[in-house]
Design a protein around this nucleic acid. Sequence first.
RNA 1: GGCGGCGUAGCUCAGUUGGUUAGAGCGUGGGAUUCAUAAGCCUAAGGUCGGUGGUUCGAGUCCACCCGCCGCUACCA
Length: 670
Amino acid sequence: MPRQIVVTSALPYANGPIHIGHLVEYLQTDIWVRFQKACGNRCLYFCADDTHGTPIMLSARNAGITPEELIGRIHREHKADFDRFYIEFDNYYTTHSPENRQLSELIFTRLDQAGSIARRDVEQTYCESCKMPLPDRYVRGTCPRCGATDQYGDSCEACGATYQPKDLIEPRCATCGATPVLQRSEHYFFKLADYEDRLKALIAAGHTQKSVANKLDEWFKAGLKDWDISRDGPYFGFKIPGEENKYFYVWLDAPIGYMASARNYCERHGLDFETLWNSPENELYHFIGKDIMYFHALFWPAMLMGAGFKTANKLFVHGFLTVNGEKMSKSRGTFIRAATFARHLDPESLRYYYASKLTDTVGDIDLGIEDFVNKTNADIVGKYANLASRSGPMLAGKLGGRLGRLDAEGRQLVERLAAAKDAIVAGYEGLDYAAVARAISALADEANRYVEARQPWATIKVDPEQTRATLTATLNAMKILTIYLRPILPKFAEKVERFLNVEPLGFADVDRTLEDHQIGTFERLFERIDEEQVQTMLEESKESQAPQAAPEPEKAAVSPFKPEVTIDDFVKLDLRIAKVLTAEPVEGADKLLHLVLDVGGVERNVLAGIAKAYKPEQLVGRLVVFFANLKPRKMKFGTSEGMILACGPGGGDVFLLAPDAGATPGLAVS
RNA sequence: GGCGGCGUAGCUCAGUUGGUUAGAGCGUGGGAUUCAUAAGCCUAAGGUCGGUGGUUCGAGUCCACCCGCCGCUACCA
């Protein structure tokens, strides 16, 4: 009984091209889907462009086109990129579709009826000149912690601080530069915590890999928070039913896009969507990257539960791609677009390389350039292609292209290769493609050794029929290897099938030998690659990815000055000389010291982040500059009533400011 | 700092429930060949399995601590 399987990959966002990092997931998924199909199962692979949200609205605006035009163009580009890598979706759809709108409204309505939707006011950042609410990333300003300029509204890239856009010093709209205002607005929230027990049960039942479950456990411990699922207009997305100016947050309708893609397929192919998606007999699997675990392991199943839909059988989480051991980098040229790769190298080389590295773990995989070149040439060319190339032409040229019968030794070889089927099937099924690749490569070694032992190039001169038997075994071995490799190398497999003159091969064909059979003409199966090609590709990636990367100003000796202020701004600060009365470490904090200061008869408690640079005893008795009218700040370890001034990059390099001799506690600094 | 992950030959990785001299591929050295996309075959060198203790008759495999990377998160007001 064939299995009925539905598979999805995460939806790529429609504001940029597909790169080789994306491809890890689509190739992992595509290989799995092709494997299932080769096993005779019905396996449907659905995906779509994720098309909503502020970034797309603004990209379109910048390009002077409508969002619909933009996502139409990107959709064509994405599809073309996937085609280049032989990623075979059964439907590659879009979240900007009537099916998705309808399903989003349906799920929202059901969640609302289930009491899982809350409404309450939030403070949002709003740009009056752009007339739109600003997502965190669209507010830029100076980091309130380290003073780095031009940081995003959610976190600082320089010091790693996280905060709210309203905490930024001199916040401004990233688009127009205007100062945003705060605005109250009612938002819709999904009460995720209502599903905590069911989510925990789901995870406990093996919904994800173990390491993912551990991570989720941390989140459960931290507590599940309500999820803000609405955005005020203008916004490119779906309006919330009954609202005039509120839209579903892009992350709400994105996963629903999986269903929409499936439904669209069903409508075009006369299948029942309800059965396909929701019946227990149908299996459902999502492939995602580890960066979006929260959405797919918590929000998404909770939404489905609340709306009365089945959750996926499994969520397969994979890691990121690094290149030569480092994060992909535009300046190093390792931020390689799918299209660029395909222009310079055979996409199947990447399919094979990724497969040889992929397991079911969440660890990152590395694309080592030299390793990649070696593996492609050694395995695909040296082992697989060569096995065909050293036997096919001889049979065609000297023995009329006709396979004979297997002799005992040949049958033994073929049976050994066939015996590996179960392990290979298990490897594919369990996403351990690395083990599959190792196993196939070992089998190819065995077949090559067989050829070596039988010396067909020698026997052809004296015993054509024995040679025919040898080549029959060799090509039967090639046939089995091809079946095993087919999910990974579909085009390679097609060439072999054409040359062997057989119908597309599936796993069921492993046990059927090819005897007394006329083969076709041999065609070259794969081109070896050299490192030059890869280097050229990296160069091109540098250019295309960082065109306007005007030579960065030589690393400035000093950080840039902050925007100008007036004396009026300065006099708002009350800076005083203070004497350190006591200084002691803070229990549980390794960077903080608890100081009690004498500010001219008044005492103040300060938690200062200088423990890495100063020992408590070095501080007692000395004079420091104290920022006296800073609003007290409640911290994990107590309240700090001001700060003492210091300079330096932090860590062990912190240098306190001090007055010259003669100053006394309480004096104002001006 | 907390939580999680990782650390096995030059490189990429296997090492099942702890059990004989720790494996493969690539790369490197040597050799015999030549059918084949200078591919294939044979062979050699190369590892104190991150470190230190412990449990055990026996540990790469279990435990503790430590070191080094990576991720998430947190306190430098």
